[in-house]
Simulated assay, not measured.
Amino acid sequence: MNNVRLPIAVCAAVAETLEGSHDTLNALFETAGAPGEPPELAHHSKWKTWLQRAGNDPKVDSLQFLGNIIEEFMDLPPADLSAGSELFGEKQDPLAGYKKQKERLIQILEEHGFRYYRGGRVLQLGSPEPISQPESISANTEGTKPTNIEELLRIIIRGLPRSMQPLTHRRKDAQPLAFSSEYDIQDLLHAMMRPWISDIRPEEFTPSYAGSNTRMDFLLPAHKLVIETKRVRTKSHAHKVGDELIIDIEHYRRHKDCEHLWCVVYDPELFISNPQGMINDLEGERTTPDGKVQVKVFIFGASA
């Protein structure tokens, strides 16, 4: 249990992000494990005070509680982007305002020794970084050698954002990589797999479906596994990615060497409004008389 005191600045910054009625936020706090009855205070003061109380209660895992409170704000951009908003006295579009507020919260957390990880996990700086995102943390920590192909690929795929960082912020006079296309993502993923997997076959054709065929990004024939990558380009493209993957699934399950399909979706601008919903819709076993395939989906942004 992490009985860590939550600084007042962190509590205040979190309270600034909370929107909704008293009843809605009361339910959020109670579900997250808030101690005692709701404070009878005005809106902003109420949530800041309740956060402080949780941070000072030895029976509360304060970091888990904090992660539960801010998870939706951190992992899910606002669904209603139709109207502008005002933040810090300036008018701006809702997505820009959301990103600015999120960056402010990340900065304040780190100034006070904390870091947020996707999936509602807050750790103290210097703690072992979690590998699993967005699923619950396993016993694996940095430096652990993977024991099977699935564990290896999870580590590689979830490590893509960290691997991009030194390539987008290179030394003086070195050309930075922008990761602006699916080819950039594929090249990085290929390079990370090469030391571990001897037989990687990029761009192999699939059997025809609906009068056309397509190329797999990567086929690992020894493991009967295909990896498909997507980069979300625009907000309108975000609405089409799920349909594109459904078509890919129909192609891939007809291939004799594809029993497992891993879909890797890079969404740097967080255009996908409900990533967990897309994951829930696509993951699992797809079976028809033509074949079957077990689908796994990973969606991550530039700061995942």
Score class of each variant (00 low, 15 high):
I227M: 11
L261T: 10
P146L: 07
L219I: 14
L87D: 01
P176A: 03
R171F: 15
L153P: 05
P7D: 01
Y266P: 07
K91S: 11
A27R: 02
G143N: 04
S62Q: 03
S212T: 13
Q133Y: 10
L152V: 12
L219G: 03
K145F: 07
T144A: 11
Q92P: 02
P195A: 13
G159E: 11
Q294P: 00
S163E: 15
F205M: 14
T49Q: 15
L167Y: 01
L28F: 14
D257P: 02
K59R: 02
I249A: 11
P77C: 05
A83N: 01
T168M: 14
T287I: 11
K292H: 14
G119L: 05
L6S: 05
I106C: 01
P221F: 06
G67E: 00
I70K: 14
M193N: 05
L282Y: 05
N140R: 15
L28H: 07
I106S: 04
L125C: 05
L282E: 01
L66N: 06
K48M: 15
E269P: 07
M193Y: 08
A238F: 02
Q101M: 09
S136M: 10
E135D: 15
F29T: 08
K100I: 00
R233K: 15
R5A: 09
I197C: 07
E135Y: 00
L51I: 13
L167R: 14
G277R: 13
G284L: 00
A174Y: 15
G84K: 01
W196H: 12
R104F: 07
E142I: 10
G277E: 07
R233L: 14
P166G: 09
R215G: 05
V122M: 04
H251I: 06
E269W: 04
K230H: 04
L6P: 04
Y116D: 10
M193C: 10
T234L: 09
L261K: 00
P38E: 08
R162F: 03
E111L: 02
P275S: 02
V297T: 12
N213W: 15
P268S: 09
G20P: 08
E72C: 00
G67D: 00
I197L: 12
P166S: 08
S132N: 13
T147N: 14
K48A: 12
L125P: 10
A174K: 15
Q294V: 00
G97Q: 03
L220S: 11
G33P: 12
